[in-house]
């Protein structure tokens, strides 16, 4: 009885974890199995016929998989860089400088926090269509250039930076830009790391906006590419399809396993705001 009580939590957790991890396992297993084994539903990890090479090369040749990945990297990094460049000075000014309209801006930022991108998609799309900017990297990135969440987060974090150090730095001849980037941001590196993870994961996995503004296969980021690929294969070759899914999910999963703490902090930071 005591034995059961001791191991029952582990048993329950293991059953749950099996369900959580099954899709990942099945995805990987299928991606290294030969097409002939597709009707084999066993979970035995060693395929009779090892055809990882075949599946992965088919995934890479059927659709420009490398291109999708590159697009994903360009878009995610582009968004992140502009977000940080615009949000950090704004957050610093809101936290540490007095200027007219500060309160109004802060109110707008908090109000904008409640508005999801899906609600703005329509007018933004019309605007981009009118200026003939659809099917460009710019169109994919533009709506995310301003992250009100980043402003909010950095504002919270900057506020606790001691004013005395800022005043001392001013007297030592630091410019305001240097104070903002080299002193204050330095004190909030954990927030910056967490926000970067948050932003990268969110935009790497986003399907809605790219689906709206991109119809050119060569510009598709990974999720949209995956959708194209699934349509092209339409259930015919699961091995290659799973190989594609593996390629697309791998970067985030590997990063997650490498820097687990930062990842969990970054993704759940919306929870502690």
């Amino acid at each position: 009885m005591a034995y059961v009580r001791r191991y029952l939590p582990h048993l329950v957790l293991a059953i749950g974890a099996f369900v959580m991890l099954l899709p990942f396992y099945w995805m990987f297993l299928t991606s290294i199995r030969s097409p002939g084994e597709i009707f084999d539903v066993s979970l035995w990890p060693i395929p009779k016929d090892f055809s990882a090479g075949e599946n992965f090369s088919r995934a890479a040749s059927q659709v420009p998989m490398a291109r999708f990945m590159l697009n994903g990297v360009i878009v995610c990094l582009g968004i992140l860089i502009v977000q940080v460049l615009t949000a950090v000075p704004a957050a610093y000014a809101l936290a540490k400088l007095r200027f007219p309209g500060r309160r109004l801006l802060m109110t707008l930022v908090i109000a904008a926090l409640c508005v999801p991108i899906q609600a703005l998609a329509l007018p933004l799309f019309v605007g981009l269509a009118m200026t003939e900017l659809l099917n460009t990297y710019f169109a994919m990135m533009a709506p995310f250039f301003l992250s009100v969440f980043a402003i909010f987060l950095f504002h919270q974090s900057f506020r606790s930076y001691p004013n005395e150090i800022i005043e001392a730095a001013r007297m030592d001849g630091f410019s305001e830009m240097e104070i903002c980037w080299r002193l204050v941001l330095r004190g909030s590196l954990p927030s910056l790391a967490a926000f970067s993870v948050f932003s990268l994961v969110a935009h790497w996995n986003d399907l809605y906006w790219p689906m709206i503004v991109v119809s050119d296969t060569n510009l598709a980021p990974p999720p949209l590419g995956m959708l194209y690929f699934a349509d092209v294969e339409s259930g015919a070759n699961y091995g290659a399809l799973m190989a594609g899914a593996t390629i697309i999910t791998a970067p985030m999963l590997v990063c997650f396993l490498l820097v687990r703490r930062h990842f969990i902090a970054g993704i759940t930071m919306t929870g502690v705001k």
Binding site: M27, T30, F39, L207, P222, P223, M242, A245, I267
Partner: peptide
């Protein structure tokens, strides 16, 4: 890690995997 893994995974790709897992004839 085990329970958090799905949060980081690209949902589009994982939905495709689920489609396969839940397939009426060849899904496990």
């Amino acid at each position: 890690v085990a329970y958090f893994l799905p949060v980081t995974a690209t949902l589009v790709a994982m939905a495709t995997v689920w489609q396969f897992l839940l397939h009426p004839s060849i899904g496990p």
